[in-house]
């Protein structure tokens, strides 16, 4: 193992933070306190935390609608939660929610509500980084379902043609709403699509945070040299597609079986092997929960957008030509 116990505890804390953050969201949803659709990534924390930890300081990330565990570790928890609750001090003044969240400062490119459209956009951004001679790359995350979009084909092909500094990270959780991967495609590993673009592609265990991180680090190093690639991480969606989806289309036995491979339990085992104690892990739980509770308390106290802020045309148009534009 290349990592010290303390480094592993660090990853563990992030996985726990991802899961507890979404459990907190779940609690709010169940109390009817939240608006919007919530797509939770419980079970997929290793894939997302692996990505977040592989990013270099100058790199950019395009997340998906199911990326709360990753965001909860990459962003400022209070500002993220304010956005989640639609408050005007959120990352996007409450206009984005986690459907469209973005932040220049955090090098976070927008989540796209139109599946697939974000892929060529990410390629355009990556190409611009290269033109500006930045030593940086983009990780563009997409789900298995999204890989069927024409935009994904077009975007990946353009990335290859232009030698764009980008890694396409397919977070394959087995399902696109009610449609299993086996009914979306005839291929076994989605990363084999890379052959069609003349770029490398690899499929990895998405529930192993270290594997994800290391694979992505290598892919990013290549990407920064203008060699794009696809990394597919296989994981599993524990919850329904969104909160409120009973998921009766899944076989209960298979579902139970799949959830046995818990990325947090896996790292726990390794940690015990390295001599970590129950007390250390319990302390992490307490710390994480406190941070999350504080973030939600902060967000709840934060102001909702006013009418004026909502109908602010300067936020629609950068060159606001006034009157007749509206």
């Amino acid at each position: 193992m290349n990592y010290s116990k303390n480094e592993l505890l660090g990853f563990y804390e992030q996985l726990v933070q991802g899961r507890r953050y979404e459990e907190k969201i779940l609690g709010y949803v169940n109390e009817g306190k939240l608006q919007g659709f919530f797509h939770l990534g419980i079970g997929q924390e290793a894939a997302q935390v692996g990505v977040v930890n592989a990013l270099g300081h100058n790199d950019y990330l395009v997340p998906t609608h199911r990326f709360h565990p990753g965001l909860a570790n990459k962003l400022d928890l209070k500002t993220l939660t304010a956005e989640l609750l639609g408050r005007s001090n959120g990352y996007n003044k409450g206009k984005a929610f986690t459907f469209h969240i973005s932040s220049k400062k955090e090098r976070l490119l927008p989540v796209n509500g139109m599946l697939g459209a974000g892929i060529p956009e990410a390629v355009g951004y990556a190409w611009a980084l290269k033109m500006d001679e930045k030593d940086a790359a983009v990780v563009c995350v997409l789900g298995d379902g999204t890989t069927s979009e024409g935009n994904v084909h077009e975007g990946m092909n353009i990335a290859a043609i232009l030698d764009a500094p980008i890694v396409f990270f397919i977070e394959n959780n087995g399902w696109a709403i009610s449609n299993p991967v086996s009914e979306q495609t005839k291929i076994e590993d989605l990363s084999t699509r890379a052959i069609a673009y003349g770029m490398p592609g690899v499929t990895i265990d998405g529930n192993d945070v270290i594997t994800v991180k290391e694979t992505l680090e290598k892919a990013l190093a290549e990407a920064r040299k203008g060699r794009p690639s696809i990394v597919e991480a296989k994981t599993y969606r524990w919850r329904g597609h969104f909160e409120g989806d009973p998921g009766f289309y899944r076989d209960p036995q298979e579902h139970e079986e799949a959830m046995k491979d818990d990325c947090i339990k896996r790292l726990e085992k390794i940690l015990y092997g390295q001599g970590a104690t129950d007390k250390e892990l319990a302390e992490i739980e307490v710390r994480v929960q406190q941070r999350i509770d504080e973030a939600f308390a902060y967000a709840e106290k934060s102001p909702l957008p006013t009418v004026e802020e909502t109908l602010d045309y300067d936020q629609v148009y950068a060159t606001n030509l006034g009157g007749d534009l509206l």
Binding site: L109, P110, A117, G118, I119, P120, E121, A122, V123, G124, Y125, A126, W127, A128, L129, M131, D132, G150, N151, H153, E154, G155, N157, I158, I161
Partner: peptide, 26 residues
Amino acid sequence: SKRVFNMPVAESGYVNFGVGAAMAGK
């Protein structure tokens, strides 16, 4: 060829490419 270049026959792909590049300041 860095300022004027052909795109493959992929209208959605390259207009979205433009969107991304524009967000990056191009």
